[in-house]
Write a protein that binds this DNA or RNA. Structure first.
Length: 523
DNA sequence: CACTATCGCGCC
DNA sequence: AAATGGCGCGATAGTG
C-alpha cells in the first residue's frame, strides 16, 4: 500500500458480482482503484479470503453524498438507483430501510448491474463532482469515505482483542456469578431489595414510572429519574438505586449475553456503519462498539508479544473550527498542545471558562455562565464566532449547511416547517440552529478522522492492524517490535490528514500514541 | 403477538 | 448546574 491512497490517478477497475480472490489479488498489483456498487456486498468475502485492497470508489456512499449536496438528502442512493436516474427509469426504492440492510448483511452480491453499467454510473458521478464548487475537496471526501468502507469490513473481520475470561471475572466481581437466563444477578437483586426496603414496598427499579410514583409517595417530587436528579434526594433509596442503575446497565449492555453474541475467539467484532450518522461519523449496527464503558476497557488486552497502540486527537473539534474559520487568534491558540490553556491565556481567564466558551460556541449552549464567556469569545475571536453563528443562522432559516469537504446537512423536515410557523416556532428554529451550528464542526472533525484513518491504514507495517475506531480515537494491534514504527505512522498520518484537509495551517492536530498492554492503561 | 415510543445512560 | 450537539441500545409501557 503506502501513500497516495487518497490522491492521484489510478487505474480504474469497475467490477460487478462476486469476485474471485485470486484474480483480485493479481490485479491489485497494478495498484488500481476498485469501483463497485457497494463495499459491504463485495469486500467482506474478499477479506475472509485473505485479500486486502488499497483503494476503492464506493458508488453507493458517493451517490448519497452527491444527492445530499444536491438537496436530495435521503433519496435512494444505491448504484441501481443512480443508474435508473441517469436513464430516466423508475428508481428502485432500495434506500436504507431495515429490509435493505438485511439484504446487504446476509445475501451475496445481488446487483443487477453489470460492470459496464457501473462504469456509466461512475463516469456520471465524476462529472457531477467536477461540476461542484470545490471538486478537489469533494474527491477527497469520496476517497476517504470509500477507504473507510474498506477499513470497516477489515475491522469487522479482525476484531478487537477481548479477553472473555477477564470479562467474566469482572462481571462476577461486580454483579455476582452468572445467573440463569432471565434472572437478576445476585448483587443486582440485593440492591433492588434495598430499594424496595427503603420505600417499604416493592418497586421495580427498572421502571421510571414506578420510581417517580414511589418517590412521590415518600413526599419527593421529581421530574425524571435521571441520576443527577436522584443524587439530590436525601432519601435512603437513592444510594442503592444509583448503584443499581449503574450495574444494571453494565449487565444488560455488556454482560454475559452480550459476550455470547459478540465475542468469539478472543475478539470483539462489531458491525460498523460508515457514514451511519448524518455528520459522517460512523455508527454501529450492533455490539455497541462506540459505547464501551470505561470500566470494561481492562478486558481489552493485547495478545502475548503484541501491544495496543492507542491514540486520540486532542480537542479535535475546536481545532477544526480554528482551521475552517481562518481565525488568526484562535489558530494561534490551536497551535499549542493544550488549546484550552492557550485560549485561557489569550482570554485572560481560567482554563475552565475558556473551555466552556469554546464548547458553548460549538454546541449552542446557553446555560450557566455560557452567555458571559461567549461575549468574550465574540470579542477575542470574531471570525470563529461568526463562522458558527452563520451556521446556526442558516439552520434557523431552514437552509442546509456543509462541512469543509462538502458533506451536506439534511434539509428541514416538513414537520419542522410546520412547527416553525406555529406557536412553538422560535424554539424549533433555535433547536435546528444548534444542530447546524454543531454539524459544520462535527462533520469536518469526522472528515479529518476519516482522512487520518485512510492514510494510517495505508502506512501500517504488516502485520499491524487497526482494530478500533471511535470518532477521534484509533487503536492498532501490533507486535511489540513494531510499536515505535506504528506510533510514528500515527503521528505522520495526523500531519498528512491535516495537510490534505487544510493545506498549510498554523493549527496543530496533536495525536499522541501510547503503547499499552491493556486499553484501560491508555488514559 | 408484534411493533413502537419513551426513558435513561453509555460513549464521543 | 442541568434550555449544548451526535449516536445505540435495552427495559418498560403503550398500541394495533
Amino acid at each position: 500500500m503506502g501513500g497516495g491512497t487518497l490522491e492521484g490517478v489510478h487505474t480504474v477497475l469497475t467490477v460487478a458480482g462476486s469476485l474471485d480472490a485470486e484474480s483480485v489479488r493479481e490485479r491489485e498489483r497494478a495498484a488500481p482503484r476498485w469501483v463497485w456498487a457497494d463495499t459491504r456486498a463485495v469486500y467482506p468475502a474478499l477479506v475472509r479470503a485473505g485479500v486486502r485492497l488499497a483503494r476503492c470508489h464506493d458508488l453507493t456512499l458517493t451517490e448519497a453524498l452527491l444527492l445530499a449536496h444536491d438537496g436530495r438528502y435521503g433519496e435512494a442512493h444505491s448504484a441501481q438507483a443512480a443508474f435508473a436516474r441517469l436513464h430516466g427509469l423508475p428508481v428502485p426504492e432500495t434506500g436504507d430501510g431495515p429490509a435493505a440492510k438485511q439484504d446487504t448483511l446476509f445475501e451475496p452480491e445481488r446487483t443487477e448491474l453489470g460492470a459496464a453499467e457501473l462504469a456509466e454510473v461512475h463516469a456520471d458521478q465524476r462529472r457531477r463532482i467536477a461540476a461542484l464548487p470545490e471538486p478537489g475537496r469533494f474527491r477527497l471526501l469520496v476517497a476517504a469515505e470509500s477507504a473507510g468502507a474498506l477499513l470497516a469490513a477489515e475491522m469487522a473481520h479482525d476484531g478487537m482483542p477481548w479477553r472473555r475470561d477477564a470479562h467474566d471475572e469482572l462481571l462476577t466481581e461486580l454483579l455476582g456469578p452468572r445467573p440463569v437466563h432471565g434472572m437478576r444477578p445476585a448483587r443486582l437483586q440485593a440492591l433492588a431489595d434495598e430499594v424496595a426496603a427503603a420505600f417499604g414496598h416493592p418497586v421495580n427499579p427498572d421502571s421510571p414510572q414506578q420510581l417517580v410514583k414511589a418517590f412521590k409517595g415518600a413526599g419527593l417530587q421529581i421530574g425524571s429519574t435521571r441520576s443527577w436528579e436522584i443524587k439530590k434526594l436525601g432519601h435512603p433509596a437513592a444510594a442503592p438505586l444509583l448503584a443499581y442503575k449503574e450495574l444494571a446497565r453494565l449487565h444488560s449492555f455488556h454482560g454475559w449475553t452480550w459476550a455470547d453474541q459478540w465475542v468469539r475467539d478472543g475478539r470483539f467484532r462489531p458491525e460498523y456503519v460508515v457514514a451511519g450518522v448524518v455528520s459522517g461519523r460512523w455508527a454501529t449496527s450492533g455490539g455497541g462498539a462506540l459505547q464501551i464503558p470505561k470500566v470494561m476497557r481492562k478486558v481489552v488486552v493485547a495478545d502475548d508479544g503484541w501491544a495496543l497502540i492507542v491514540a486520540d486527537a486532542a480537542q479535535l473539534e475546536p481545532r477544526v473550527l480554528a482551521a475552517m474559520a481562518g481565525d488568526a487568534g484562535l489558530a494561534e491558540a490551536a497551535g499549542e498542545i493544550d488549546l484550552y490553556s492557550a485560549l485561557a491565556a489569550s482570554f485572560g481567564g481560567e482554563r475552565e471558562n475558556a473551555k466552556l466558551a469554546m464548547l458553548s460556541a460549538m454546541y449552542g449552549g446557553t446555560g450557566g455562565d455560557a452567555a458571559k464567556v461567549l461575549a468574550v469569545m465574540r470579542q477575542r475571536f470574531p471570525q470563529a464566532y461568526r463562522f458558527v453563528e452563520d451556521a446556526a443562522k442558516a439552520g434557523e432559516d431552514g437552509k442546509v449547511v456543509r462541512s469543509w469537504l462538502g458533506r451536506t446537512s439534511p434539509p428541514p423536515s416538513g414537520h419542522w416547517r410546520e412547527l416553525v410557523s406555529g406557536p412553538e416556532g422560535a424554539r424549533a428554529a433555535r433547536d435546528r440552529g444548534r444542530f447546524t451550528r454543531n454539524f459544520v464542526v462535527q462533520a469536518t472533525a469526522a472528515e479529518w478522522a476519516l482522512a487520518l484513518l485512510a492514510v494510517l491504514r495505508g502506512r501500517l507495517p504488516e502485520p499491524a492492524r487497526l482494530v478500533f475506531f471511535q470518532h477521534d480515537e484509533v487503536m492498532v494491534h501490533c507486535p511489540l517490535d513494531l510499536v515505535e514504527e506504528v506510533a510514528a505512522a500515527v503521528a505522520a498520518s495526523a500531519a498528512e490528514a491535516t495537510r490534505l484537509l487544510f493545506g498549510s495551517t498554523p493549527v496543530r492536530f496533536p495525536m499522541e500514541a501510547v503503547a499499552v498492554s491493556r486499553y484501560s492503561d491508555a488514559k
